[in-house]
Amino acid sequence: MRGTTALSKTERQERLKGYLLAAPAVVLLFIFTVYPLCYLIYRSLFGGNLITKDPKFVGLENYTSLLESKDFHQVLSNTLIYTAVTVVLTMVLAVVIAAWLNSKKNRRLNELVQTCIFTPHIISMVSVSTLFLWLMDSKNGLLNILLNALGFESFPFLASPDTALFSVALVTIWKGLGYYVLLIMAALQNIPTSVYEAAEMDDTPALKTFFKITLPMISPTILFTSVVATIASFKVFDSISVMTGGGPLNSTNTLVYYIYEYAFRYGKPGQACAAGVILLVFVCVITYVQFQVSKTRVHYQ
């Protein structure tokens, strides 16, 4: 009898210790994740501005005014176009370059390429953005000087609403490419060599081996990294803030930048929070996809 109570006492102590050790992290995660999420949804139902003490309850009005606003439609389409361009180009380039660097030709050079291609990933987006502002400068920018020297016409880059969003995407791709190459190379190196032996014996052409063996083997990684890239694109803010400020003519205004401007420039936190909830829905959908993807990933292994 005494034995069991003693045991349950240490057990209880044990449990208490588990809680105590986790407590600081739990408290911080509550303050900075759970509470803000709840408050975001709650605040999206109220009007008022940044300094109103008791904002008025307006129900879903913030949402309806967002969905009716032409500006917001453009912001949504900007965000989706930017995401599609960035993710597709990044993934295609990353797979091609990773497969290329994984080949046995010029091995020493491969190491150097890998080092160089990854460098922009650890540099601040502010630096990269200002650097490309200079390179894309319409008067003295090196990119246009180079295009002219090669016999092409000047490209307007960030100056025209038709090309600005694409130019911002280009900078993101340049900065992030190395990271995705690195992840896909890691997947390539995990493919057992035995898989290729049969193909080698049959003298299968390299291109066919790539499409029939390599690509299916790394497709789980490609899907997974695409999800990572998609969420990163939804969050885009720094490059927009530094390079274009959403312009020209709203052509590069994306979701997070819109939220920021609505809260701090136009002083409409209710509407900004409603837009935040829409971003939350986007991220949840993508994460759900990621969850499904990781299920299929288990399948492959």
Partner: peptide, 10 residues
């Protein structure tokens, strides 16, 4: 980028 507004208010 989702939680910044509530944290700012707080």
């Amino acid at each position: 980028q989702i939680t910044f507004l509530p944290v700012y208010f707080m």
